[in-house]
Write a protein that binds this DNA or RNA. Structure first.
Length: 273
DNA sequence: CCGGATGTTCACCT
DNA sequence: GAGGTGAACATCCG
């Protein structure tokens, strides 16, 4: 499933759709349309029009319809975007590119040039909206400033990982990217968010950016150094110590007890006499 | 057969 | 009010 890196690659794919006239629209799954949206309404706002821009905040892809509302696409865990038969630069997702069942196609937009854009989602965990509430999302993790991150963390004593994955506070990070960033920062996922000191926040901010840059270059959220070790018997790729598993924010969490300590004080003995 | 999986939302507790 | 848990969605994989 798409975390923000995958959605960003879908956005780039969607750029191929801009300025092409939409001839036909099919939204066969009413359940997939959110906020009481009807298939007829989707057809109505798209047919005969064209997309002016493809934007993204976090995991939300937004296509601006000229003289119309914004088409919002949420991909959930198994959603994918297909344009002109090309699934784009995302590899290694749960459902490989060769396995697309016709029944999983939740939206088809055919252009008058014979091409098409399709949203495919086996598990139906994603959804389609019109004029999605962009203000419901926090700043995108790729552009969040250190100052913004500080404010986000200071406002909650919930576990650090839960705060980082809360899309209303910070948009874009999912389970894999969050574990990877915390591992890179050397921070325990269960630390109270507002417990971090200035140096730790700086470290986290840098780790988030490094994670997005590196995994983005490698091709997606599943390309992190920690990912292949997120399983029973997995070891920290940096120290060789066995990884530990927790459930935080309802999600399976893997971390290295050697590098990610549950208390702020780590390593050096700082106890006075 | 069972449990878990890159996500979100909701009901229901504490 | 803030957080946590479990369920739901539907399918595949180990």
């Amino acid at each position: 499933m798409p975390e923000m890196l995958e959605v960003e690659s879908y956005r780039r794919l969607a750029l191929r759709c801009l300025q092409r006239t939409i001839a036909e629209v099919d939204a066969p799954d009413p359940w997939y349309l959110k906020d009481g949206l009807s298939a007829a309404a989707v057809v109505d706002v798209l047919r005969g029009r064209r997309f002016d821009a493809a934007r993204r905040t976090g995991k939300l892809l937004m296509l601006d319809i000229r003289d119309g509302p914004v088409l919002g696409l949420h991909f959930g865990m198994t959603g994918r975007l297909v344009v002109d038969g090309d699934v784009g630069a995302v590899d290694g997702l749960l459902y490989g590119p060769s396995r697309i069942a016709a029944a999983w196609v939740r939206l088809t937009v055919r252009f008058d040039d014979g091409g098409a854009m399709a949203m495919v989602d086996a598990r139906r965990l994603g959804g389609i909206t019109l004029d999605p509430d962009e203000t419901a999302l926090g700043p995108d993790a790729a552009v969040v400033t250190r100052k913004q991150l500080t404010t986000i963390l200071d406002r909650s004593r919930a576990p650090l990982k839960a705060v980082l994955m809360d899309q209303r506070r910070l948009a874009g990070l999912g389970n894999l990217l969050t574990d990877e960033a915390l591992w890179r920062a050397g921070l325990h996922p269960g630390r109270p968010a507002n417990d971090l000191d200035a140096a730790e926040i700086t470290k986290l901010h840098k780790a988030i950016r490094a994670t997005l840059r590196i995994c983005g270059q490698r091709g997606g959220s599943h390309t992190g150094d920690l990912v292949p070790h997120r399983q029973p018997g997995g070891v920290c790729p940096r120290t060789g110590v066995p990884l530990e598993r927790l459930t935080i924010g309802g999600r399976t969490t893997w971390f290295s007890p050697a590098r990610q300590h549950p208390s702020p004080r780590r390593g050096a003995s700082v106890e006075p006499l």
